[in-house]
Design a protein around this nucleic acid. Structure first.
Lengths: 144, 144
DNA sequence: AAAATAAAAGACAAAAATATCTTTTATAGA
DNA sequence: TCTATAAAAGATATTTTTGTCTTTTATTTT
């Protein structure tokens, strides 16, 4: 469904939301451990998300990653688009370049419904909400 | 959603269903052209599907690929499983190894519904049905 | 039986995704 | 102002996916 990069990105965003909710910042090592991802790899991903303004960061001592109030309202759709592009939102399920309502691939109609559900789910799910459920231990980002 | 390999596989299966409905067989070159895929690549994929009994083939002159009556009833789920495995049916949306109803990832509940829809769609959609729509020019496998 | 045909099998190549390491830049605190 | 810290940037490495080519095997036709 999502690329590995995108999976890490979403997990990291939720983790950062949790760790920075009191105004503090969280370092890349703690993030990598917290979401069980390769350290250097998630660093690259967050760098890119930082450039796009999806996550905030500060260099230097006491620096790290955090989410401001606006970033907490980021939808999953925004993250997915930033990382994987919008193939999942609009690409053809069978990989055809030419596929549309007017010129549908054999799976077009079946996919339209599913894609609509996915899009709506990603649009309405926000990082802050997922973080709250995580806080309440209703959901988990790792084994322990 | 699917790997490129899987997209080609589904497209090829529908194409073969169409071209072999009168009992004839279709060669790999015609398939590759018909679904706009790399010839040697789709050959490999069909080889594998052949081994698994999803598609039928014959070597030698007048040989080629075809679908018997039972193969026409193959669901997309069968093809997807044969090619991509069952990650799409059961894997965690965020890539966690440990993710279940009891120990859900932050997206688990949202994904459960979507995955259910995808699974049911893939299970009930059969190659033969898609081929009929293609025959009626209600859907297309290529531009022209 | 020999020749021609077409898929199967095996080896190889290129591209993309994933992962790692090193150097540079910004910031805080001594 | 100097040092330590942590992210940014850039370069490199590995793995997986995708794509290609060559040789072998099975089958039909002559």
């Amino acid at each position: 469904m999502f690329s590995k990069t995108c999976e890490y990105a979403i997990r990291a965003m939720i983790f950062i939301a949790q760790k920075s909710k009191d105004g503090s910042k969280v370092g890349i090592k703690e993030i990598a451990k917290g979401i069980d991802s390769p350290e250097y790899f998630i660093a690259k991903i967050l760098q890119e998300l930082g450039r796009k303004g999806v996550v905030q960061s500060m260099k230097g001592p006491t620096g790290g990653f955090y989410l401001d109030n606006s970033a907490r309202k980021t939808s999953l759709a925004t993250i997915v688009k930033a990382v994987d592009g919008d193939n999942i939102f609009s690409g053809c399920g069978l990989g055809l370049k030419q596929c549309s309502d007017k010129h549908p691939c054999p799976l077009h109609h079946e996919f339209t419904k599913i894609r609509k559900d996915i899009t709506s789910m990603l649009n309405k799910t926000r990082v802050g909400d997922l973080q709250e459920e995580l806080d309440q231990k209703l959901t988990f980002l790792r084994r322990d």
